[in-house]
Design a binder for these strands. Structure first.
Lengths: 169, 169
DNA sequence: TCCGCAACTCAAGCTCACTTGAACTTCAGC
DNA sequence: GCTGAAGTTCAAGTGAGCTTGAGTTGCGGA
């Protein structure tokens, strides 16, 4: 196995389709050198970069965000483990936010839907925010929101009784 | 406030844009009666239906899935609280799956990325499945995966040392 | 030399969940 | 009666993250 991989080798080793790799290169996420024929040759360390991309996507980052993260890696030398782990260190809070919303949704299954309240206006469970609430067209990704402080509520959802009264009015 | 709401009233009460409501109606998620003029009139109970839709979207269901869920409601009478809660009762497992993946990803931040292993082929952390791995083009949503049983691994990710050796080969 | 696979570029297509725009009608208030 | 806001339909656009197809060239083995 040589130092340089063809796009096919890179694809099969990373599990990412060749077309996706070309797309990543076009977006500046990865780089290749070209053989005389014009064919791409990926240096082996690109595999770790691809792995990072896939991982970051699962965490919920967009390719744009991932590109900016990758831009923080040292350009002059091969990234160390420390470099990689520094990149991902900020994600923990993000993941925790997601988990927190999922827990809220789960609680809402019994509390809000179960009781029939289901208010959209104040019940935090269904209060889009973050990327899900971004303006413009396009699909709304499932994402976590952050607690909205409501007057008198201090972040606590209104009671189901209150909400039922409101929505039924 | 009358029994029937205009699309504008429905939109402002639900927080969902009028264009989205038309789209939902087109998809069969909600229904309206028409005034003589051709204007939509939504019966008040549609608000609860819309709330359910928004909630279910946050949980991660597609509109198609939501439509099929709504199809389970009794057609002959107004749904009770019990009807609503029965619909959502299956979601708990789904949410739990998500939470579980997030926890795995979080652990991977220190274990896999931290140590530099980052294998795509066997490390479960970055093993797309479910909706994220659906065939065809289109955006890949962030979703949870399920443990993949690997030979000899029985669902346990290979060690970082093994993976490092593999990816570097 | 020939075959067949792999790679190349570039444009277009695809999904999802909507939004936007055009061209027109209806309703409410003065 | 007039005006402006709100409603209608239908077609086309949007954004993310790719894939697919067309048409061409390169590489490796028999």
């Amino acid at each position: 196995m040589s130092e340089l991989l063809t796009i096919g080798e890179t694809a099969s080793r990373s599990g990412v389709a060749a077309s996706a790799l070309r797309y990543y290169e076009e977006r500046g996420l990865i780089a290749s050198v070209r053989a005389g024929s014009g064919h791409r040759r990926f240096p082996r360390p690109v595999l770790r970069r691809i792995a990072f991309i896939v991982f970051a996507q699962r965490v919920g980052l967009t390719l744009e965000e991932i590109a900016s993260e990758l831009g923080k890696l040292p350009p002059d030398r091969a990234p160390t483990r420390r470099d990689w782990s520094r990149l991902s260190s900020t994600w923990t809070a993000r993941i925790d936010d997601r988990i927190a919303e999922l827990e809220r949704l789960k609680a809402g299954l019994t509390e809000c839907i179960g009781c029939g309240c289901l208010s959209l206006e104040r019940c935090r469970l269904a209060n889009p925010d973050d990327r899900a609430a971004r303006l413009g067209p396009g699909p709304r990704y499932w994402v976590g929101d952050r607690p909205v402080s409501a007057p008198g509520g201090a972040g606590t959802p209104a009671t189901c009784a209150q909400e039922s009264a409101k929505i039924a009015r």
